[in-house]
Every structure is written in C-alpha cells, then in structure tokens.
Amino acid sequence: MHEMGIVSGILSSAVDAAEKEGASKINDVRISVGVLTEIQDFALQFAWESLSPGTIAEGAELVATFVSPVSKCSQCDTEFEHDRFEIVCPNCGNFVCEQIKGRELTIDSIDID
C-alpha cells in the first residue's frame, strides 16, 4: 500500500525535472529500490498506472531495479550480500554489521522528449 506514497514522490520529482528541461513527454522513469524496503514491483506498477494519467508521464514506463542487501562487518570489514533476515558476517560470524546496500529508494534518471 505504501507504494502509492512512493509513486507520488516519483511522479512529482520526474515531472518537475522534465518540466525544468522544457520536456513535453516522459518516456521512461528509472528507479532503484532496495529489497529491504519491502516494496513490490506489481504494486508500484499499479500505483503508477493510477497516478500518472493526466500528467506528462502518462504512458511512460516505470523501470525499477531491485538492489540486493549488502552489509559490512564492524569487526573485520568484510562486505557480504545477504537475504532479508540473516545478517551475519560469513568471515567471522559477527552480527554487528553496517547496512550499506538494500534500502535504496532513489529516482535515477528519466527519458524525455
């Protein structure tokens, strides 16, 4: 459900940036989404189809790249990929780790005419 709020953020940033460039149409919007945000692509697409009509982003494709979680061990500095649950350093077994990837929520670029 919070995809609605996220998509309205995407839409306003994309439309602002496109209008600043004097664009009349947005062709696609590229975003990065960390897996740990629990955001689902189908819900993003549903919200995009609901919110973009009537704006210059109508008909634009929303392309989400999902980013896997990566953490860095606070003891041995090992960087490792992990799933959403087990965050344990594979090198030394420490679970005090700093999250460095996986929580992204960024609008990367737009393609405009």
Binding site: S13, I31, T106, D108, S109, I110, D111, D113
Partner: peptide
Amino acid sequence: MEIDIKKPILDRND
C-alpha cells in the same frame, strides 16, 4: 533524451 536525477524518491517527505 536521458537526464540523470539521482535523488531520493521521498525527497519531499524527508
């Protein structure tokens, strides 16, 4: 034309 934005999606909220 491709434009880079590189901005948090929840920028306004933040």
